[in-house]
Simulated scan of single mutants.
Amino acid sequence: MTLIWALVVGLLVGLLAKLVLPGRQPVPLWLTILLGLVGALVGNALAGALGVRDTGGVDWIRHLLQVGVAAALISFTTAAGVGRRR
């Protein structure tokens, strides 16, 4: 069940990251999920380092960090040409 939740979180964070980026990103779905999952993990680590990982309500800062890291990863991947069809 943990693997399924990891895939769902990776998909949601990855799709939100693609949504906030301008233009179209030719990144395949599997890579979007992978980068979203990495973004979620790194965003959690950053939130923990900043002391905002767990708050009394919704952890908006943590979620923004997760999406921001995933967006940066997708931007770098797109700029590197990964996922483009030839």
Rank of each mutant, 00 (worst) to 15 (best):
V20D: 10
G43D: 06
L21G: 14
D54W: 04
N44G: 07
D54A: 06
P22V: 05
L65D: 04
G51I: 00
P22R: 07
L37W: 11
L34F: 09
T32N: 05
V58F: 15
L21E: 12
L29F: 13
D54G: 04
V38I: 04
L37K: 08
G43N: 05
R24V: 04
A40L: 07
V52R: 06
H63Y: 02
L64E: 07
V52T: 08
V42D: 01
A40D: 08
V42T: 05
L29C: 04
L21W: 13
A49N: 07
P28V: 09
W60L: 14
G57T: 01
H63S: 07
W30F: 15
I33H: 10
A49W: 14
D59F: 02
D59W: 03
V58D: 07
W60I: 11
A49C: 11
A47W: 00
G39N: 02
I33A: 08
A47Q: 08
L34H: 06
G36H: 04
L35F: 05
G39I: 01
V38N: 02
L37N: 05
P26H: 09
G56W: 02
R62P: 00
G57D: 07
L50G: 05
R24E: 15
V58L: 10
G56D: 06
L35V: 06
H63K: 03
P28R: 11
L29D: 09
T32S: 12
D59E: 06
A40R: 09
L65M: 00
W30S: 15
P22F: 01
P22H: 01
G23D: 14
L31Y: 07
R62M: 00
P28S: 12
W30Y: 15
Q25N: 07
R53A: 15
V27D: 13
H63L: 06
D54V: 10
L65K: 01
V38S: 05
H63N: 11
L41G: 11
G23S: 13
I33R: 08
A49Y: 07
G36Y: 02
Q25F: 05
G36R: 00
W60Y: 01
T55Y: 00
A45F: 15
P26L: 11
V38L: 09
P26M: 07
V20G: 11
A40M: 05
V52E: 02
H63T: 08
L37A: 14
